[in-house]
Amino acid sequence: MESIVGYLTAAAQAAGGFIPWSAELEAAGRYGLSHREIEAAALKAGLVPARYARNIGTIGLEGQRALHRARVLVAGCGGLGGNVIEGLARLGVGSVVAVDPDAFDESNMNRQLLCTVESLGRPKAEEAARRVAQVNPAAIVTAVRARLGPDNADELLAACDLAIDALDSVSARVCLSEAAARRGIPFIHAAVAGWYGQASVQAPGSALVAGLYAGAGADGADRGEETRLGNQSYGPAFAAALEVAAACAILCGQGSGLSGRLLTWDLKAGSSAGFDL
């Protein structure tokens, strides 16, 4: 039997350059490999699955390889998290740890990508894994149904290259940002409320997010204006896109201009402002 690389090379050539999904399916059966293993063999040999055809112009083969190798923690699988996980899976991030203690309820329906009439009542983290299996079977999701806090943050971050904030409380955010700093990995922050939002990248070892929220919580409040304004479909999707773009740039070694800066926006006014932290 020809080698897996020989098979994939022939399949890519026959399809005009990229490996079609049909050949991945065939290879999985023929060689008894997972889609993740097939993708690893392909990228190592310089072959690109067709699902990434539109990635390469921006991130290149090396970028695609880096994404495949990456393990990213996404804390929260709600409004931000659902969109973030979807974006990471479509990019080709190889491994995602999806953390959320909750199950979907009807108030999530207006904005949370993974909330559907079918998923009502189901655990959010497990729905994230189900969705990724449909979108990109080469990506692995470890679903963790737990509340992120001081007792588990370090353990959850083990072996992760990057952490993404999709949380909805100040205390959990600061806790995860500090754990990311201890581990020496970047932490991508975003938060939303109605038309408004903010995003930033905390560089490895930095205390940026703790400093950003140092003025909050003094009155015991663990949340912000979202308790009054709620969140609608556009806010989390917009913020999640910024987070995924920053993750892509960082993992591909291109660096993010959000590092050490806070970008704020007003989606009704169509305005944004950036500040140094």
Binding site: L167, D168, V170, A190, A191, A221, E225, N231, G235, P236
Partner: peptide, 10 residues
């Protein structure tokens, strides 16, 4: 001086 309210939703 630029002043922002707390924003924490996800």
């Amino acid at each position: 001086v630029a002043i922002f309210p707390p924003v924490g939703g996800g």
